[in-house]
Design a protein around this nucleic acid. Structure first.
Length: 552
RNA sequence: GCCAUGUUGGUGAAGUGGUUUAACACGCCGCCCUCUCAAGGCGGUAUACACGGGUUCGAACCCCGUACAUGGUACCA
């Protein structure tokens, strides 16, 4: 085709496109940002639910933009209508906000580089395609699905690369007359790239995370515009990230294999390519098969973003976890800098894992416990109230009614240098502190304690009578020892171990009996602290409850 | 099939040619502390560099091959 013919073809295909590339280049000028500022973006498709991997990717986007004083924006990639779910976009935005991973620009956040929804940018994409057609770098392709399938079969038999390229790209050199004829026959078409690549040549790409990578040049005539005139991901990526001036494309590494295409696209469009950072997927070892696979929402509860919200895992703890898998040196840094926060850490791409990052539930759990242990009882109370407001209304009511007590219970052994690590999520509070609220402490609590011992109610009644709750912890324990000796128990476990036949037991057994009757469990935070909060009347009520339970 | 990337103890991982007899964290075990548990302190644990060649005075690190895993190979993203 001659230049005139190409111009005619472009007009024929896109008569309604009147703007030019230059118009858009002017509309979206270079951003005015400090040196080294990164512009990152999170580009979800509106499928509704959000995966941990999505969260991780968005977290990285945010962190790198933030620390370089750049921009983190949100772009909705909804070029495939089939994937769209009603309310999906709102859900994504809600989840991002809920997890405190918030873009500062983009769809629903405003900004000068919009629209930030790809379905609203069709005209832009078509303008650039029209230009490509004029340059002879793109062409309409009329192949049907059946024809393409046939080619694939042929390629499979010949064991060659599968796809539309070179000799298989039959519509590549259609004459203007042929195109016109097909058009008048109302044949459907897509716009394909007329790839100038030579697969025998290698290109070298430097990925910020993966380092140097070599690929053959792209020679696939990839679809740029689908039958309905909307762009494919690849084309939209090139146009959008150029016009929005993205400096760093941080995305999942399922994209590395299309890198040659993307680089080529930027080249023929005359754009400066962004830097790429391909992050490893979050994987897990499958219990059944023993193989490593991506986290799956069906099999792994941790995969969905909802899980964290519903089970009450603190956002900050999740951020900590995402930070530890984002940069391999974060964990150690955080351990050595207990007074610092994530914002003080300098993230860098070369500390980012190259291979798949395995999801480590135990580590998350530990992080959560550490998080809670550093919070005061009052803070834990407040956050738990907020959590239960949404997920456990009944308990929420009780928490509010017993505010003072709850805060006291949650504060036990919190002030020292070694705070307790009882809970790892908000939903643990109810069970872990079941003894705190009388109305939900029932006989059943005792059956949860599955020891086979029965404790002496009368002895405990006598003991409680003798206790002075105004004493200090030390005074109390001394008293308990005396009480133990007076009733045939050893004052210390060591004495008991030496001569077990001389005693009924030791002071620990007294405490155990008391602990079980009061809390319904054999383990608890400091017993005397609990007793002080409860007071003698309530302690006696518990003992009576235990009497009923144990038929004494 | 083709293309790409990855493979370090039970788990997550540090490590980019020579103080590596391979960190650290989680887990597990033991001891100490101790009324229980948690926490904390101390110690231990695992015969960990996928395999085979090569380059080098020297390789977990560089090159080649094999195996396995993952991803892509869509008018999905």
């Amino acid at each position: 085709m001659t230049q005139e013919e190409r111009n005619e073809l472009a007009e024929l295909l896109f008569p309604n496109i009147t703007k030019t590339r230059e118009d858009y280049e002017k509309t979206y000028p270079e951003r005015d940002l400090p040196d080294g500022a990164m512009v990152t973006r999170y580009g979800p498709s509106p499928t509704g639910s959000v995966h941990l991997g999505n969260l991780f990717s968005a977290f990285c986007d945010m962190v790198y933009a933030k620390q370089s004083k750049g921009v983190f924006f949100l772009r909705i990639e909804d070029t495939d209508q089939k994937r769209a779910v009603e309310g999906g976009v709102d859900n994504i935005i809600g989840v991002l906000k809920g997890f405190d991973i918030t873009p500062i620009e983009g769809y629903s956040f405003g900004g000068a580089y919009g629209p930030y929804k790809q379905s609203e940018r069709t005209e832009i994409y078509q303008t650039y395609v029209k230009d490509l057609i004029k340059q002879g770098l793109a062409y309409p392709c009329f192949m049907t699905e059946e024809e393409i399938d046939q080619i694939r079969e042929e390629q499979e038999i010949n064991k060659t690369k599968i796809g539309i390229y070179g000799m298989y790209a039959v519509d590549r050199d259609l004459s203007l007359e042929e195109v016109k004829e097909k058009l008048t026959n109302n044949e459907e078409y897509v716009i394909r790239l007329k790839s100038p690549g030579n697969p025998n040549k290698q290109i070298e790409v430097i990925d910020c995370i993966k380092g140097k990578m070599k690929f053959p040049e792209n020679d696939m005539d990839t679809v740029l515009l689908k039958k309905d005139g909307t762009p494919t991901y690849h084309f939209a990526h090139a146009i959008d990230d150029h016009l929005m001036h993205t400096t760093h494309v941080i995305r999942g590494d399922e994209w590395v294999s299309s890198l040659p295409l993307h680089i080529q696209l930027f080249e023929i469009l005359g754009f400066k390519p962004p830097k790429y950072a391909h992050i490893a997927p979050i994987t897990i070892k499958d219990q059944e098969t023993g193989t490593t696979r991506k986290l799956s929402k069906r099999k792994d509860p941790w995969a969905g973003a909802k899980f964290y919200e519903e089970s009450g895992i603190p956002i900050e703890a999740l951020h900590l976890y995402l930070a530890t898998i984002a940069n391999t040196n974060f964990e150690e840094w955080y351990l050595n800098n207990q007074d610092k926060t994530i914002d003080d850490f300098e993230f860098s791409f070369d500390k980012q894992a190259i291979g798949g990052t395995s999801f480590d539930e135990a580590k998350l759990n530990n992080l959560c416990k550490t998080y809670f242990s550093r919070k005061s009882g009052e803070e834990v109370y407040k956050e738990t109230v907020t959590y239960t407001e949404k997920f456990d209304k009944e308990y929420n009511k009780l928490l509010k009614e017993h505010k003072e007590d709850m805060i006291k219970f949650l504060s036990i052994e919190k002030d020292g240098p070694r705070p307790r690590k009882d809970i790892s999520k908000y939903s643990d509070v109810k069970e872990e502190f079941s003894y705190a609220i009388d109305s939900i402490f029932k006989e059943e609590n005792y059956s949860k304690y599955d020891g086979d011992k029965t404790y002496d109610v009368e002895l405990m009644k006598e003991y409680v009578e003798s206790v002075n709750l105004d004493q200090t912890n030390e005074e109390w324990f001394n008293h308990t020892k005396e009480f133990a000796s007076a009733h045939g128990y050893a004052a210390s476990p060591k004495d008991y171990k030496k001569n077990p036949e001389e005693y009924k037991g030791h002071v620990g057994d007294i405490c155990e009996a008391l602990r079980v009757m009061i809390t319904g469990r054999t383990k608890s935070p400091d017993l005397f602290s609990i007793m002080k909060i409860l007071g003698k009347d309530r302690i006696n009520e518990r003992i009576e409850l235990y009497r009923k339970y144990s038929n004494q």
